[in-house]
Design a protein around this nucleic acid. Structure first.
Lengths: 348, 348
DNA sequence: CTGAAAGCGCTAACAA
DNA sequence: TTGTTAGCGCTTTCAG
């Protein structure tokens, strides 16, 4: 900056104003300074800037505590990435809700009063939340939706795995695994839920493309209830002894596994589940679960935070969407997943 | 630091010496200061440190230019992550080789003279390189192997996809896709190559576990030659009309695709390839390639650099190994891969 | 062995 | 509209 100032015959303060864009400065000098800066290949020293500005970047976070197997990893991704950037003054204001959707509006209101520059949240009820998101954006608070979206709102960005893609992915794998004239079923939570609806949609779109002779014979709604899911699955399996594949689009796969075992069909019926948690492990090991579609909660949290840090520190634009690729978990790569590693393994 | 100094009745300079570990300082005062620092929960301001020290962390990089489809992404991962950490003074000294193994020792020697704190390289000839790696480590230069390993050396760490795992992963997917009494073959480069050998090994271990009745009938070495691979594949397919799966463990999958098409077997024989580049796209689209095992070159580069930055900036230990999970690419998730995205899409 | 002070590059408040 | 200047927290050099 000093060198620019010298060449432009102005003070270092003026150079600052020119570079900064704001401030009262004559357009002519501004242009001149900018020109010289470019010629010199000037790049700001971020360390100095951070040191000088002093106050950090406060980021509000509102995510659920449950379901732990998912949000624990989202949270870790967020917090670790925040800590990695502590030296840039990144600071988190954490206002969790107990379950998805519980009191989310209250928490958001609270966060809006906390002098935050940005807000990360997992909208459960986008309609309800939209006015608050819009209000935040009006105040200059960047809102990033995480894991689920609020498309009708003015949110700056969303980080997630597209549910349709997850469904398509599952559908394609299922199709590849099936033999001729196969019959498959889907077990889901509630079809009303946007997320589940889209997964089912993606799955059923793709399946016939991969195997024209495959048929989706049933979509079972388990309503996230263990017993209901179990008994409905048993019925499904008895009703249809030729079923050769099941896709569980919700996290509740354990009752499905149990139903398969109790009917002696474990390993015979190809089972594709979603996500990953400890209790699934034995079913993976003994071949009941063939594959699981993993939504990479840790990386989702990490990505959300990185987008914001890059934006506030380097002025990088935040893309309106950041879609992650789902992973597929099989027996052979199971060991590499954090959920099953010991706590002190290195993480990113 | 000022507050610590006050409480300990010393100057800020003494606090610095105590914290820093080095320097001439009476052990008693050192302990006292450390104690107070801990009580106060002192954490150094990294921005200030970087600003003060001035000179950054120079990291030497020696990776090949070819094969572009792979190393271009490794390089991007490395460079972008370096740029993200510019404000911490991270700086790259880039000494590429044209092809894997070409003049690697020369380049490494050159880099060792460049006042680097760390060295990232892709060893092609570990035996040859080991003494240089050891020398570097002796000089206090942290050596990180990237994409391939030099296990007999004293390298600090390795970042890669384990080839055995990639093979096992492919084997399991293949197993899941096959029907009864299936016969499969592998097309590889040279079995002498450690990497290929291990992939083949992983694949053949897992296949019978997934399908006891499947049989690995042939392993074809194409020696990375287009014509040789093509004609050997055609022979393979004619010799064995009942072949139902092929795993290509090398990047050279195009001749295999062409052979399948020319024999009218595209889509009939399940084809699993490795990695991803533009020319594979049509074969994905028309169903010739069922799946590809993706080694995430971008993330490999990114991870290597992150490990080092975390180490030098925050004093975090570098884990001796950092294994990435390979991804599987299918038609449905193809669109999300960078290789096929336009250049200005957001990246991490 | 310890203290004092300059300065890293930038921002922001105040003065002109 | 522009110039001046005091720090931000730390390292490092030079003097005690």
């Amino acid at each position: 900056m000093e060198e620019i100032a010298k060449l432009a015959n102005v003070s270092i303060g003026t150079v600052g104003r020119a570079l900064h864009g704001n401030g009262r400065i004559k357009e002519a000098t501004r242009q001149r300074i900018l020109q010289i800066a470019k010629e010199l290949g000037y790049k700001p020293n971020l360390a100095a800037r951070v040191l000088s500005v002093g106050k950090g970047i406060r980021i509000g976070i509102c995510i659920p505590r449950e379901l732990h197997f998912f949000y624990d990893y989202v949270r870790r991704g967020l917090f670790r990435e925040a800590r990695r950037n502590e030296h840039l003054g990144v600071e988190i204001v954490y206002r969790p809700v107990d379950r998805l959707g519980e009191e989310e509006v209250e928490k958001v209101k609270e966060l809006l009063k906390s002098d935050i520059r940005s807000l990360i949240l997992t909208p459960a009820d986008p309609k309800m939340l939209a006015p608050w998101i819009n209000k935040a954006e009006q105040q200059g608070i960047r809102v990033v939706c995480l894991a689920s979206d609020a498309p009708q709102s003015n949110r700056t960005s969303v980080v997630c795995v597209e549910p349709v893609l997850a469904g398509r992915f599952a559908g394609e794998i299922m199709g590849l695994m099936l033999s001729e004239k196969a019959q498959v079923a889907i077990v889901t939570g509630m079809l009303q839920t946007d997320n589940h609806h889209k997964k089912v949609q993606g799955f059923s779109e793709v399946l016939p493309q991969v195997r024209a002779d495959a048929r989706l014979v049933d979509v079972v709604e388990g309503h996230e209830d263990e017993d209901e899911t179990f008994s409905k699955c048993v019925q499904l399996l008895r009703r249809n002894r030729k079923l050769s594949g099941i896709y569980v689009s919700t996290v509740n796969c354990l009752p499905v596994c149990r139903a398969l075992r109790s009917e002696g069909l474990a390993g015979k019926v190809k089972l594709i589940t979603s996500d990953l948690f400890r209790e699934m492990l034995p079913y993976f090991r003994n071949g009941t679960i063939a594959a699981s579609i993993y939504q990479r909660p840790y990386e989702q949290g990490q990505a959300a935070l990185r987008l914001l840090v890059d934006h506030f520190v380097s002025g990088r634009a935040v893309p309106p969407t950041y879609y992650l690729n789902p992973n597929i978990i099989l027996r052979s790569n199971l060991a590499l997943y954090r959920e099953l590693r010991n706590a002190n393994a290195p993480e990113f």
